[in-house]
């Protein structure tokens, strides 16, 4: 599904290399987790994959279903099935959450040559998804993320994911800032979406999320590279011992 090879990324503004050769392959239907110290490049990877400005790919490649995505506009990547749940969801005053989602859903459908969703169907669909994530109707009417609590923003990201039904979902610290119950809801939301044709890349600092969303593979990222990959036990090791031993291993 997602194939990243030797990805090197620099900041456009300053001469600073952030990703220094990332190799990662997420198969269809799989869940991979990425853990790693602060500043190791996890969010950068997620931004580069989704097409944010300001980064320059100096080497390597990234493909989604064997199609190169690095030359695509962000909206094309989205239409191709890529989704990023932001570590810091953006507030957009003046744009209603509902309007935003409907515009997004229909833009993607249009890009894929599908019919737009009728207003009625959309409403039914969003109500159902919102309910399962414990998002009340009031929140749907408010401007995107404006005045939302940290946890509400994260749940709103998952709602968008549920509505857009992407095939490659990247979750950047979606668990941070969630209370225990919200984390369960989010995990359930993710699990409900798990299917053969859909893959997840879950960036997290905590083992706890991975108790709910069982990963197939856990990667450790440090200083712009994947330094170790393994099974769920790797996450436990990090939880218990931190990164010192792992970093020492590769040093």
């Amino acid at each position: 599904m997602l194939e990243i090879k030797n990805l090197h990324v620099e900041l456009e503004e300053e001469d600073k290399q952030i990703l220094k050769g990332v190799d990662l392959s997420v198969g269809a239907g799989q869940v991979h987790a990425i853990m790693g110290p602060n500043g190791s490049g996890k969010s950068t990877l997620s931004y580069v994959l989704s097409g944010k400005d300001g980064y320059e790919v100096t080497d390597g490649s990234a493909t989604l279903d064997a199609v190169d995505i690095l030359d695509m506009d962000p909206e094309e990547r989205a239409a191709a099935g890529l989704f990023l749940a932001f570590q810091y969801p953006v507030e957009i005053p003046g744009v209603g959450n509902m309007t935003f989602l409907r515009t997004a859903v229909n833009a993607q459908r249009k890009a894929r040559g599908e019919d737009e969703m009728s207003a009625g169907d959309f409403l039914k669909f969003i109500r159902e998804k919102a309910k399962s994530l414990n998002i009340d109707a009031e929140m749907l009417k408010r401007p995107v993320n404006v005045g939302f609590s940290g946890g509400e923003k994260k749940r709103n990201e998952i709602l968008q994911m549920a509505m857009l039904e992407p095939k490659m979902c990247i979750l950047d610290e979606t668990d941070s800032g969630l209370d225990v119950d919200a984390m369960k809801l989010v995990a359930e939301g993710v699990n409900a979406l798990r299917s053969e044709g859909r893959s997840f890349l879950v960036i997290t600092h905590y083992q706890r999320l991975l108790d709910h969303i069982k990963p197939d593979v856990v990667h450790i990222m440090a200083d712009g590279k994947i330094i170790k990959s393994g099974g769920p036990e790797l996450a436990l090791e990090v939880e218990n011992n931190g990164y010192a031993d792992l970093l020492a291993e590769v040093a």
């Binding site: 962000p74 909206e75 989205a78 932001f86 953006v90 957009i92 515009t103 890009a111 857009l164």
Partner: peptide, 14 residues
């Protein structure tokens, strides 16, 4: 707001 613009585009809005 470039961040807002990117956020919208990342959801598929041209």
């Amino acid at each position: 707001d470039e961040d807002a613009l990117f956020y919208l585009r990342s959801r598929g809005v041209p």
